[in-house]
Design a protein around this nucleic acid. Structure first.
Lengths: 209, 209
DNA sequence: AGCAAGATACCAACCAGTTGGTATGCATTC
DNA sequence: GAATGCATACCAACTGGTTGGTATCTTGCT
């Protein structure tokens, strides 16, 4: 009789299950999308059991909401603390933000794809809570440039152009660029989207490179 | 004894199963995404059995490829036959194309969402054939404006700007606009994306509204 | 002791895909 | 032009595995 030495599986430290599940979800959703990611996948990747999953989240959709909200705070914190916010001129802050976005495109494709954009594409009709979380995320993205654009427009008004409208174009360029990059399997179009956005802003504000 | 009158289920006419499945897929994928749409869903919506499905498509992924390729030819034919192509001035053709895109945004959201963009977002890593089909679709989209942009740039060159690069921005605006519209549950941001694209082109080519 | 965190075991529904078969049409032969 | 032969189109029933979710028990902290 072989004493089946009960090897205690590498246990996730108590209290970390929730965070690990969200982390795993961030990665899996970026690679496969939300619907194609199963709860079992998530638990396996997080090193956690199903019981832990449904202890922390009442449903898979609820994990989706938590994932997107976590993504919103994560990116929000990252951009808020970045040095681009401390340039003197508001337009310089905007251009430095664009530089930062272009830098991020140096990572592998799944690493720069947007959790909110990916998920809302699938779930905008089937899960209102997920759609609402994506809306919060996108709107929070506006804030990364909105104040700078407001100041720039105050100093140099452009007829027919609002700061909100311009801030939206940053998200359009981001999300559209990601889709092109995925389809063409090449980050270049995503970078080009920011190049054109920068050229547009320079023309609008009379600030040639 | 009641003679259970054998009501023959409304049978799809012979030869139509394939087309109906693609049609059903177009609608379902736009509403729920590709992964969340099951083969049973598709068969039920098309009024066809599973046997018919796997007679025409070796796998669900193959249906995805056929769906996107069908979408590519469908949209290609629609844009190619449109009157905007017959204006004298190339830039007028480009602006008329933008008008057309804005008009299309008057439909309900699932009706103007892009099959290729939605699907590649989920499947770019998991299914190379689907990714390739999406690439064909996106590249075919470039062609709707590329010749006009080439002619416009030939007559009015802009340093650092290529026709290919500009054509890509049309897809960026389209795809990015759709994601914003889905997240904010409002087509306005998608329209605004084209407004800004038009303003950008007018600035580039010195052609004020 | 009490309570949140997490593990184990389980379930009914659903999943993509397969089976073995039938109905239909079309080309060839006589 | 009828009979033959065969491919295409389609169908109902089924399979093994997976799905999201639940019920119940154990662990460890305060």
């Amino acid at each position: 009789m072989t004493t089946t030495t009960r090897v205690p599986p590498v246990r996730v430290p108590r209290g970390e299950a929730r965070a690990r599940l969200i982390e795993a979800a961030r990665s899996l959703v970026r690679h496969k999308g939300f619907a194609a990611t199963s709860v079992d996948d998530l638990c396996a990747a997080a090193g956690v059991t199903k019981g832990a999953f449904f202890h922390h989240f009442p449903s898979k959709d609820a994990l989706g909401v938590a994932l997107i909200d976590d993504w919103t705070t994560m990116t929000g914190a990252m951009f808020a603390s970045h040095p681009y916010n401390f340039k003197d001129d508001p337009l310089d802050r905007v251009f430095a933000y664009i530089d930062l976005r272009r830098e991020l495109l140096g990572q592998p494709l799944p690493e720069f794809s947007c959790v909110a954009g990916t998920t809302v594409q699938e779930a905008y009709e089937t899960s209102p809570p997920i759609r609402a979380a994506a809306e919060r995320s996108i709107r929070s993205g506006f804030a990364h440039v909105l104040p700078h654009l407001e100041q720039a427009l105050a100093a140099h008004p452009v007829p027919g152009v609002t700061a909100e409208g311009l801030a939206q174009q940053f998200q359009v360029a981001t999300q559209g660029g990601i889709i092109l990059a995925k389809a063409l399997d090449d980050p270049a179009p995503a970078r080009a989207a920011f190049d054109h956005l920068e050229r547009y802003l320079r023309l609008l504000f009379g600030r040639p490179a």
